[in-house]
């Protein structure tokens, strides 16, 4: 029940913010489209299985996201400096990283955070093994050092 209510609430708020209209006809269309999207997402739940609802995760991510943003800015500037340098000195290679988060959601968050920082892109996630492509040696070391992994574990609430 909290699941149904929260997803309907998100849909209605998103619709309201995007349209900004108040006429009865348009609001009726909006309600219909919210119901349609809700039905489709229920159907998707049946395909991939229900994911657990975790409100604590949303709260804890308030501590994680600013740090992630800082990392993204830093690595963006690194890659930009590399590109405009006189001769790009890339050391393009693949590394294996251990993702020891307990839940599937945690591992996906970790893999996506790695990809979101330029300089490292996750190629494959299989079990607890991540295959990561790194642009430079220092980018690879940044991942292997494991700070991000620890923070994601803490975000999960198990670390």
């Amino acid at each position: 029940m909290p699941r149904i209510l929260s997803s309907l609430l998100v849909l209605v708020v998103a619709w309201g913010l995007w349209s900004g209209h108040g006429e009865p006809l348009i609001v009726g269309f909006g309600a219909l489209s919210c119901l349609a999207v809700f039905g489709i997402s229920r159907r998707m739940d049946r395909v991939v299985g229900e994911q657990p609802l975790d409100y604590g995760l949303a709260l804890r991510s308030l501590g994680y996201l600013p740090w992630l943003l800082l990392q993204i800015v830093k690595s963006n500037l690194d890659v930009a400096r590399l590109i405009v340098g006189s001769a790009p000195t890339v050391h393009s290679h693949l590394i294996r990283v251990q993702a020891d988060q307990a839940t599937e959601l945690g591992r996906v968050i970790y893999a996506n955070s790695i990809t979101l920082t330029p300089g490292t892109i996750t190629l494959d996630l299989r079990g607890q093994d991540l295959l990561v492509h790194a642009l430079t040696r220092s980018a690879a070391e940044g991942v292997q050092e494991g700070e991000m992994g620890r923070r994601v574990s803490r975000l999960e609430g198990q670390g």
Binding site: I83, P88, S92, L116
Partner: peptide, 22 residues
């Protein structure tokens, strides 16, 4: 510029990552 200068698909994807994020 990175899309043009870097040597292969893997490295170019990092350059496209700059456009996508910051």
């Amino acid at each position: 510029l990175g899309l043009l200068r870097l040597p292969d698909v893997y490295t170019r994807a990092h350059a496209a990552g700059i456009n996508d994020t910051l």
